[in-house]
Design a protein around this nucleic acid. Structure first.
Lengths: 343, 343
DNA sequence: GGTCGCGTGGAAAACGTTATCGACAACGAT
DNA sequence: ATCGTTGTCGATAACGTTTTCCACGCGACC
């Protein structure tokens, strides 16, 4: 089956194909790229030789010649659940575009080496890819003039095109759910205040209260800092209050799960005595006990759209909107119920 | 935002640096690569110009000239937990080697498009990377003469260098644990029989029994096929038996978690009435209820070693061993206890 | 004062492709 | 016959590097 062709010592080059077929390299090139100007006889003949020799064009040489690599890069801070989900969406969107997709990881070293992305972008991306998607929350200020789309950039607004989830609306969704269930004292474990996403979620929390005409107790807002330990502490403080909340809205699933654990530890049953809502809908949230009710971000979709935008930009088309925000949805699982105890 | 970023951002070329510095391109090249034969005066002068112009060498042109890209690729079937963990290990091992790391994903389409890897390897890998790590369980028969290392190739032995976990020893570990706890009727949910890893785990299961002198009831062996649904069904059958097992050893964590769910569904409490041991130690296994006792594979280490081997191969060194197998360890959590019920 | 060596710098040929453009034949129309 | 036309095909110049190799100037050494 695997017919061993010629002494394929190294790589078969166009020259060799041309020599074998008795034509010029120009002709071979035309055949390969389906250009007009070659008779069907020679076309067939050349394709025959090409497949017999197992010839594959050197993408490097081609890139050099065309100053296009036909490769799109996704730059992630680390391969955590969020980025990998984005990657899946991106991998999905890439097919049929004629581009290849590669992923680069900072290996979680982002905090240590600030400016990592800058260096990387100019070094690698600048020459090996035609465009890039950034999934590096903290850094979006890069000096690389190629097409770039940022996904979920937590830090303040950037000049780049972006794709984000609607954090404000998502928070409204989560808190409205709690409010609708009858909760009137809702605690919130907020995220790092320097991230816009966290601020938007907090704002949604406030707006939901305002819209429902429910007064807000400021002492019920705690900083969870997107870190699981601190989130646990925040939940602990909340539950130790003389008049503890009947529900907790966490800025992200990790914090929510931490809250769940603290509740279990304190012997508080969820959802009977305490309701918990998360944000993100990471895969783990379906496996917590009880399974977490949470606000889902369309992460895959975000990766998908980012690639689609990139492709458009490269094609030279104008983007309909440079800042795309995608709707979130509420995933109801078993961590929420009415304050009484009945779900 | 500057409007004039051309299709591919017009980069500074070596020519321009040379012109600006009043020297020849050869000299600039020598300076860039630190070659001998340039006076320290001109060296300083050129480096000055280089940084002023923000010049970065075109990796494409460089790759074409030296037929090396200095990029290593990791080819994954999909971005699931296992592969991403391998990727982290790889990203870790890559630093300091002078290579860059890129990841390619089949986008989970491996089953549909058999032979995907073959095409991809010859097309992309053959020309864009200097070597590749394969994390594509089912296919390892590729015709790409570059350096390749396969990680955890489930399918039969391949001629490629490989890195795998010691599945046999791992299964021994898990089953010995159960046996040591006092269990005498242990069920096993096995994996797809066409995968060597699954067969080795089953063999470890048998050997552990033999070593302990505990007779083995063949009716307690069920095919779980590495699929969560089928694993659930297998567990259900096992537990519906007139004389059900007091413990289940699952061929992987996904199956084990499925078994946990089935037990919960049937009102069987874990670990009081049933002990469950998994294999892999995926992140989710720590979050199941109860947290899963499981056999941990050093997945990161596998990625790390694969890259290290690749680098060695490219350097032309001989590999100490072409088939590396790494030790597994038992992670005791709360899904196992003595048959009576006391942990 | 001629060679020899040595320290510098540059010219030019690759690497494998693609696009441009001209050569050449065959052929119908004037 | 001449002239354009059409249809094939091949030379050739890039693309941006790196790497020989060669030229030049200048001390040093007999």
């Amino acid at each position: 089956m695997t017919r061993d062709h010629h002494p394929t010592g190294s790589r078969v080059t166009m020259q060799q194909v041309a020599a074998e077929a008795g034509v010029s390299v120009s002709t071979v090139s035309k055949v390969i790229n389906g250009r007009y100007g070659v008779s069907s006889d020679t076309f067939d003949h050349v394709t025959e030789i090409v497949s017999r020799l197992g010839y594959e064009a050197s993408l490097v040489a081609r890139s050099l010649r065309n100053s296009r690599t036909n490769v799109l890069g996704v730059l992630v801070a680390d391969f955590e659940p969020f980025s990998t989900e984005v990657l899946k969406g991106a991998a999905d969107a890439i097919r049929g575009t004629g581009f290849e997709l590669v992923a680069y990881s900072a290996g979680g070293r982002v905090d240590e080496h600030v400016g990592w992305e800058r260096r990387y972008l100019s070094r690698v991306m600048g020459t090996l890819v035609d465009g890039a998607v950034l999934v590096t929350p903290t850094v979006t200020d890069v000096q690389y003039d190629g097409p770039i789309v940022a996904v979920d950039p937590h830090t303040g607004r950037s000049s780049l095109p972006t794709v984000t989830a609607d954090n404000l609306q998502g928070a409204r969704l989560g808190v409205d759910h709690l409010l609708g269930l009858g909760h009137r004292r809702i605690g919130m474990v907020t995220g790092r205040p320097d991230l816009v996403s966290a601020r938007l979620r907090e704002r949604g929390f406030r707006e939901a209260h305002a819209a429902a005409g429910v007064p807000l107790d400021e002492s019920l807002l705690r900083l969870g800092a997107f870190e699981q330990d601190q989130a646990g502490d925040a939940a602990r403080e909340l539950l130790a209050l003389p008049d503890p909340p009947t529900a907790i809205f966490a800025a992200n699933d990790l914090s929510a799960i931490a809250a769940l654990e603290v509740a279990a530890e304190l012997g508080i049953s969820v959802p009977e005595q305490l309701s918990v809502v998360g944000f993100d809908n990471i895969p783990d949230s379906a496996l917590s006990s009880p399974p977490l009710t949470t606000v889902q971000q369309p992460i895959r979709q975000m990766g998908h759209d980012a690639i689609a935008m990139l492709v458009q930009m490269i094609a030279g088309e104008e983007l309909a909107e440079t800042h795309v925000t995608l709707e979130t949805t509420l995933v109801r699982r078993r961590s929420t119920a009415a304050p009484g105890g009945t779900p």
